[in-house]
Design a protein around this nucleic acid. Structure first.
Length: 625
RNA sequence: GGGCCCGUAGCUCAGCAUGGACAGAGCGCCGGCCUUCUAAGUCGGAGGUCGAGGGUUCGAGUCCCUCCGGGCCCGCCA
C-alpha cells in the first residue's frame, strides 16, 4: 500500500497544518513529486486571494515527516510533495519481497462468495474471437476476485435446448450428414463450419426443410424425447471441444449448467409465483400479446418507454427472459431448490468441472453470493435490465446482480473480405450463420506459428517441445492482451493482420520484459550477487520510476475492484514493463559493483509485482523467450 | 419514435469515473543504438481544430446541454 501511504501522509501533514480534508492526487510527471494537492486553487477562489500566496502560507505551516521530506510550491499554485527516496524505496521493495506475487492483492474478500458466469456459448460451433473476449473478461474477473480473497464460483451456461440445436439435429437425422467430422477436423468446427451453415442455407431456400427444423425445435423442448436426448449428446460433444479452446486461453470453470436441466428444475415456477405475488405480472386479455403473461414495466424509468415484456407465451412456454429470471434467483442463492451434479472433467489446474445432472451424486456449494457477475455483451442490456427489475420486485437486492457488459468484437472490412465477404463498411459483425468469423484456435495457431519462427531464430538449440511451449505461451499472451486492453465500452475491431503482431503494445512485450528480468536473476546468481534492499542515497531516475510504478500497483488493484474497469490492470502491466525496460537500458545490474545488490532487489521486485499482475490478467509467464 | 455505446495523430488506441501543470503510447514513415544482463528491446524526428457549438469553473480532452457522424438494442427468438 505504499503510494497510498504517501497520500495519507500528505493528507495528514496538511491536516496537522490546519487544512483538513484536502484531496491528494498523482502528479502527471515525476518532476512534480510523488503526490500533489491543488488546495490553494480551491481556497483562492473562495478567499479571493492569489493561489501562490496561499500556497506559501500553507507550506510555511507544514511539518515534514520521515516519508515526505519536501513540500514545494509550483506555479500557478500547486503543492508538490516529495518523498525521502531511500526510505520510500526501501519500504516499497521490502513490502514486495515480503509478499511475493501476492503483493498488491490483499485479502479484502475475506472468503466472501462471488459467482461469475461467462463463456455461455451455444454448443453448436467452435468458439470465435468474439466469444474469446467474453471468456477472457470473465476469466480475468474470476482471477481477480480469487486473488483478493474471494471464494469464486465460475459458471458456464450451456444452452442445449435452443433452436440452434435443431439445425444440427436436422442435419444429422434428416439430411444425411455424418456424425463424424472429416479427418483432422474437430467436432465443434465440423458442426459450426459445415453442418450448421449448410443446413441454414438449405432451409432458407427450401420451406420443407425449414418446416422440419421447426418440428425438431419443438421436439427438443420435450423432456425425454429422442430429439431431446440427441441434442444433449451432441451438445456435450461440442462442449468437450469448446472447453479445450477455453483451457487453451487459460480459463477454468467450476460448474456447467445445462439449460435442459434448468428447465427441469422449474426455477421459473418459483419466480412466477413471487412475481405474481408482487403484482408486477399480468395476463394480457387483448391486443397482440393476448394470452401472454407479461411483466409490467411502467414503473421503470427507462424500460417503461419500450413496452412490457412477455414472460410466458400464450402456448404456456417460457421466454428466454423468464428462464433467466428463474436462473438468476438460483445464482443469487435465493431459490429453494438446488442442482445435483456429476463430474464432467478436469481443469488444467486439476480441479473438477461439474455439470448439472438430475441423477448426479455430487453437491456443489456456491454459497449465498455477495454478487453475481454475468459477462454478456452489450446487446443484451435490455433483457438484463428486465431481470434486475424483476429481482427488485421480488424483494431481492438488484445491486447483487451485475450485468458486466462489453461491446462485441467485429471484423475489419479487410478481414471480412478475407473471409469472402465484400463490404464497404469499416467493420462488419461476425455471423455464425453466414460463416463470417475467425475461430479462436485458428487465430492461436497462426500466432503460434509466427512466434515459433521468431523463437527458432533466437534459440536454434532448443528442442521441439520447448519451442512449442514457448510459442504457445506467446500466442495466448498476445490474444488475451489484445482482447483485455481494450475498453469494454468500445467495440474491438478485429483484424487478423493487425493481431498477428507480437511487437510493440502487445502481450509478448510484457512477457519479454519478465524474461529479461529472469535472465538478470540467473546471471546474478552465477556472479554470486546477493539481494540487498538498502537503497543508495542517489537513485537513478529510471530506478525511481520503476519503484513508483510498483508502488502504484496496490492502488490500481483497489480501483479495479471498485470500478471493475479491468483494462486498468492491463494498462498498468504495460506501464510496469515500460518502466522496467527503461531501467534495463540505463542501469546495468551485474557489473554495477556496490549497486548490484540493490538493483537486483529491484529486479526481483519487478518480477514479483509483474507476475502477480500477470496471474490476474492470465498472461503466461516465461523465464526465457 | 424510444434507449444504450463510441468519436483524441494517417491507422489502432491510453488519458475522462475523482476537472489542474507542456494531450500520451503502439503501428506505419525517416534516422540512430547489439565485442556490458535477450534488439520480441531502445533512443531521436516528423505527425493533434481532443467530432462541432454552447454552458459551468480561477481552470474542461475530462462535468452539463444541443447538434453531427458511426454502431447496437427495442420479437409470443435465444
Amino acid at each position: 500500500m505504499t503510494i497510498k501511504r504517501v497520500f495519507e501522509e500528505a493528507k495528514k501533514l496538511l491536516e496537522e497544518a490546519g487544512y483538513p480534508g484536502a484531496r491528494i492526487g498523482i502528479p502527471k510527471s515525476p518532476e512534480f513529486g510523488e503526490a500533489y494537492s491543488s488546495l490553494p486553487f480551491e481556497m483562492a477562489s473562495k478567499a479571493n486571494e492569489n493561489p501562490m500566496s496561499i500556497a506559501e502560507k500553507i507550506v510555511s505551516k507544514i511539518k515534514k515527516s520521515r516519508l515526505i521530506d519536501t513540500v514545494e510550491i509550483a506555479p500557478p499554485g500547486y503543492l508538490n510533495f516529495r518523498v525521502n527516496w531511500p526510505f520510500f524505496a526501501s519500504l516499497t521493495i521490502n513490502e514486495v519481497l515480503e509478499h511475493g506475487r501476492q503483493y498488491a492483492f490483499s485479502n479484502v474478500g475475506k472468503g466472501e462468495h462471488i459467482l461469475i458466469e461467462h463463456t455461455s456459448v451455444n454448443p453448436n460451433k467452435a468458439l470465435h474471437v468474439g466469444h474469446a473476449r467474453n471468456v477472457c473478461i470473465g476469466d480475468l474477473l474470476a482471477r481477480l476476485y480469487s486473488k483478493t480473497g474471494h471464494s469464486v464460483t465460475v459458471l458456464n451456461y450451456i444452452d442445449d435446448s435452443g433452436a440452434q440445436m435443431a439445425e444440427l439435429l436436422l442435419g444429422f437425422l434428416e439430411l444425411g450428414y455424418s456424425e463424424e467430422p472429416p479427418p483432422g477436423m474437430r467436432f465443434d468446427e465440423y458442426c459450426g463450419d459445415i453442418v450448421y451453415i449448410e443446413v441454414n442455407r438449405r432451409a432458407e431456400r427450401d420451406p420443407e426443410i425449414d418446416n422440419k427444423r421447426r418440428e425438431i425445435a419443438r421436439q427438443i423442448e420435450m423432456h425425454g424425447s429422442e430429439a431431446f436426448r440427441k441434442a444433449r449428446a451432441i451438445a456435450d460433444r461440442v462442449l468437450r471441444d469448446q472447453l479445450q479452446t477455453c483451457a487453451r486461453l487459460g480459463a477454468r470453470y467450476d460448474i456447467l449448467c445445462r439449460e435442459s436441466d434448468v428447465i427441469t428444475f422449474n426455477l421459473w415456477d418459483e419466480a412466477f409465483r413471487r412475481l405474481k405475488d408482487s403484482g408486477v405480472l399480468y395476463l394480457a386479455n387483448e391486443g397482440a400479446k393476448k394470452g401472454c403473461w407479461c411483466i409490467d414495466l411502467s414503473g421503470h424509468e427507462v424500460l417503461s418507454k419500450e413496452g412490457d415484456e412477455v414472460l410466458v407465451k400464450s402456448d404456456g412456454g417460457t421466454t428466454y427472459v423468464a428462464r433467466d429470471i428463474g436462473f438468476a434467483i438460483w445464482k443469487l442463492g435465493e431459490s429453494s431448490t438446488d442442482f445435483k451434479y456429476s463430474v464432467w472433467g478436469k481443469n488444467p489446474d486439476g480441479s473438477d468441472i461439474l455439470i448439472t445432472d438430475l441423477n448426479g451424486e455430487r453437491k456443489f456449494e456456491k454459497g449465498h453470493p455477495k454478487i453475481v457477475i454475468n459477462v454478456i455483451d452489450s446487446r443484451q442490456k435490455r433483457p438484463q435490465a428486465i431481470i434486475k427489475y424483476a429481482l427488485s420486485k421480488m424483494g431481492i437486492d438488484p445491486g447483487r446482480y451485475i450485468h458486466f457488459s462489453y461491446e462485441p468484437v467485429t471484423l475489419s472490412s479487410r478481414s471480412a473480405k478475407l473471409l469472402g465477404m465484400g463490404t464497404d463498411a469499416k467493420q462488419v459483425h461476425m455471423s455464425g450463420r453466414k460463416g463470417i468469423y475467425f475461430k479462436v484456435d485458428e487465430i492461436l495457431d497462426r500466432l503460434r506459428e509466427i512466434a515459433l519462427t521468431e523463437t527458432v531464430k533466437r534459440h536454434p538449440e532448443w528442442d521441439e517441445e520447448k519451442l512449442k511451449y514457448v510459442s504457445e505461451a506467446i500466442a495466448v499472451a498476445s490474444l488475451r492482451y489484445s482482447l483485455l486492453k481494450a475498453d469494454t465500452d468500445k467495440m474491438v475491431v478485429f483484424d487478423i493482420e493487425e493481431s498477428s503482431r507480437i511487437e510493440g503494445d502487445t502481450g509478448p512485450y510484457i512477457l519479454y520484459s519478465v524474461a529479461r528480468a529472469y535472465r538478470i536473476m540467473e546471471k546474478a546468481s552465477n556472479a554470486k550477487i546477493v539481494i540487498d534492499t538498502r537503497p543508495p542515497n542517489n537513485l537513478e531516475a529510471s530506478e525511481k520510476e520503476l519503484i513508483r510504478a510498483i508502488a502504484h500497483l496496490p492502488l490500481i488493484v483497489e480501483e479495479t475492484l471498485e470500478s471493475l474497469m479491468i483494462k486498468k490492470l492491463v494498462t498498468h502491466s504495460r506501464q510496469l514493463a515500460m518502466r522496467f525496460n527503461d531501467f534495463y537500458e540505463s542501469c546495468p545490474v551485474i557489473v554495477s559493483g556496490e549497486l548490484a545488490g540493490f538493483r537486483l532487489a529491484l529486479v526481483k521486485s519487478y518480477i514479483e509485482s509483474q507476475i502477480g499482475l500477470m496471474d490476474v490478467i492470465g498472461l503466461p509467464i516465461l523465464k526465457e523467450m
